[in-house]
Write a protein that binds this DNA or RNA. Structure first.
Lengths: 224, 224
DNA sequence: CTAATAGTGTCTTTCAGACAATATGGG
DNA sequence: CCCATATTGTCTGAAAGACACTATTAG
C-alpha cells in the first residue's frame, strides 16, 4: 500500500457559557503560525503518548490552556479536509463543553465574532446549533449556570438559548416532571421580594433525559 | 513543539439496509493484517491526495469497495485512541449510510453479529442508536426502502426500526403533515385487495425535517 | 397597606392513540 | 355477495399554552 504524508490530527474545544445573559465562547489568541495573533478555539495536537483517546486529549487541552475541568463535555463532530489548515490535510476532532460563568477566560459573544483562525466559525456554529437542539429536550442549559440556581434563573437561560420566551407555569411543570433537580437548603432573595428556592442538578451519569418541551404552538390552523 | 509519530486516520462506513424486515449492515472480510480474515466495516485510509475532505473519502470508499453511491450519508462520530488498532494511535472518522435492499453486499443482521475487527461493534451500535433516535422525528427510514413504496411498507419499516407497532391512522396523519412524499402514478396490488398508492421521497436538499412523533404515552399519571 | 417576584391552579387547545367505518380491488 | 387490504373519520385522554390567582418577603 502506498504511503501518504502524515495527516495533522488535532482536538478543538468549543467552551461555552452565558455572560450577562449572552451565550459566549472561550477564545485564545494564537501565539504561533499559522494564524499567529488571531483568535482561535482552545485546541492542539493529539499527543499519542499522553492521550489514551480523543476525549482524554480534550480534557488535557482544557486543563493546560484553560485550567478547568468542565462538568459537561461531548464530542461534536470532526472537521477534516485539505482546505482548513495551510499546513496540509488536517482533521480536527471537535468537542463542545459547558461551564459556569464564573470560569475565567476570554469570553466572546457567539453572535458577534471577529475573524477567527481556521474554520473555527463553522465549528462554533455547529456547537451552538447542537446546544440549541439539545436544549429543547434536555437539561443541558443548566450547565451554563453556577452550581446552584433558582428556577427563574434557569428559565432565563432556556429562553436565551432557545431564543423565545417560555411560559413560567409550563416550564416549572416540565422541570418538576423531569425530576432532575435537587432542592438545596436555603433561598435566594434580592430586594423586597419573596425569596426563591435554590436548586442544583442531581448527580447523574446520564445526560439527555427527555424534556420534550415543544416549540410554541401556532395560533391558527395551517389549512387541512 | 515536539514531534509525535504519525496518527493513523481512516474512514469507516456503517452501511445499512433492511433485508427481510431485519436491519442489516454491510461487512467485508479483511484481506490483510491487522485482523486479516475477519469481518469489518468497509473503510480505509484517508487519501490526502484524492480526498478533499472526510466525506469525499467516505464516498470514495463506498465507490471502491461497494460500488455504490448511497442516497443518504452522514457523519456519525470519530472513534480515536491507542487501544483500537494494534498498529498504534488511530482515529476512525465513522459515517453511516442508508441504501435500498436491492444493493448487492454481504449483509449481516445487526442483532446477530459475529466477532468483528477493531472496535467495529461499538461503531455499528452507535449507528443503530442514531438511526433509531432520528427515526422518531424524521423520514430517514424511507432511505431503507426502494425508491418507490406504499405507506404500508413505510410503516412496517418504521416499526422495525423503532421496535414497536404504530397506529395506522396516526402514522398516515404524521406522514401527510410532513409533506415529504410525492405520489407516483400507478399503484401496487397483491391478491384480491384494494391496490395501494405508490409514493417516493420528495427531492430535497435537507434531511431531518421534524416529525415529532413522540414515544407512546404512559397510561397512568406519574405522581404529581 | 404596597411593591415585587415566587410559585400554583385552572381553563382551553392541540394532538396522538384507539378504533370504527368506508373504499376498492378480485373472485 | 365474499374477503382482504387501503384509506379515512371520529372520539378521547394527556399534555402544553395561556393566564389569572395566591404566597412571601421588605418596607
Amino acid at each position: 500500500m502506498a504511503m501518504y504524508p502524515p495527516i495533522i490530527v488535532t482536538v478543538d474545544v468549543v467552551l461555552m457559557t452565558l455572560c450577562l445573559d449572552v451565550l459566549c465562547v472561550a477564545l485564545i489568541r494564537r501565539p504561533n503560525a499559522p494564524f499567529a495573533g488571531e483568535l482561535a478555539l482552545p485546541g492542539g495536537y493529539v499527543h499519542a503518548q499522553e492521550d489514551g483517546n480523543a476525549e482524554d486529549a480534550a480534557y488535557r487541552i482544557l486543563r493546560e490552556k484553560m485550567g478547568i475541568k468542565p462538568p459537561y463535555l461531548e464530542q461534536l463532530a470532526t472537521f477534516a479536509g485539505n482546505q482548513r489548515d495551510p499546513r496540509g490535510w488536517s482533521a480536527s476532532i471537535a468537542y463542545f463543553a459547558l461551564v459556569s460563568p464564573t470560569t475565567e477566560a476570554t469570553w466572546q459573544p457567539v453572535n458577534e465574532l471577529q475573524k477567527l483562525a481556521f474554520d473555527h466559525p463553522a465549528i462554533i456554529q455547529a456547537a451552538v446549533d447542537r446546544l440549541r437542539s439539545k436544549s429543547a429536550y434536555s437539561v443541558l442549559p443548566a450547565y451554563l449556570l453556577p452550581e446552584t440556581f433558582t428556577l427563574a434563573e434557569l428559565q432565563k437561560i432556556y429562553e436565551q438559548v432557545l431564543g423565545s420566551p417560555l411560559d413560567k407555569s409550563s416550564f416549572r411543570r416540565k422541570i418538576k416532571e423531569l425530576d432532575l433537580l435537587d432542592q438545596v437548603a436555603g433561598s435566594f432573595q434580592v430586594g423586597n421580594q419573596r425569596p426563591a428556592q435554590i436548586y442544583r442538578l442531581k448527580k447523574m451519569m446520564t445526560f439527555d433525559r427527555t424534556l420534550s418541551q415543544s416549540a410554541p404552538r401556532k395560533t391558527g390552523r395551517s389549512g387541512q
